[in-house]
Amino acid sequence: MKSWSNHLLAEPLEGLGRITLLARESIASLLTFKVAWRDLLYQIYFVGVKSQSVVLVTGAFTGMVLGAQTYFQFHKVKMDTATLAVVSVSMCSELGPVLTGLMVAGRVGAAIAAELGTMRVTEQIDALRTLATHPVDYLVVPRLMALHITLPLLTAEAIAVGIGAGYLVGVYLLGIDPTYSWYNMLRYTATTDVVVGITKAFIFGGIVALIGCYKGLYCGEGAQGVGRATTEAVVYSSIAILISNFFLTMTLGKLLHTL
């Protein structure tokens, strides 16, 4: 009975509390700490450059399938030329940030949790602390900043590639009129859609970095602990992205439309 409630309530709450503390510590560190540019640059390279193939494939195929499916439905009601507008709006505000976030959670979040987890179980984190270095300054902040910077860029890339791929499929495979499609897309895609998407990506970047770092820093003992931390980092950050996405859509939508 106790372990049941422990498992269901205490553990997630404890995790949430620790992540909040980690976020606070990171912000405090960001404000006072002279950034280690080399580490940051390396992390940006690792997150950004090394995620290219994943993001390109995700963006392109999502745009393509979205274009095709929308066309099949819209064709029935003779709205063919609105296809690209649908692709564009959904890529910008939902699919671009969410799918890129999920892919990066799987690739980068897992790598962060595994790396920091291994450092913890081999006492490297303790060694860092004896050398008067705060793990948050040295490990968390560069990763957090790198993801905050890189995920919006990757998302923008996925959106652009997705729209391009949707356009190619629509115009060259399905025979939609290119001029009207383009015109409708520009007409129905608002700046706010792009702003919403990029804002989401910025927030998802923080989610992936913080959950990955938290799982790594508080990893259990041994190889098993590292394995568990890695899996949990991916699962929890994916779930957090999906859930927060709903609330972001609601709040950002309201916020930006009232402006």
């Binding site: 450092m119 081999t122 006492e123 490297q124 303790d126 060694a127 860092l128 004896t130």
Partner: peptide, 10 residues
């Protein structure tokens, strides 16, 4: 501090 496991940054 020297750690029992050396704890080098690998």
């Amino acid at each position: 501090m020297l750690f029992q496991s050396a704890a080098l940054f690998d």
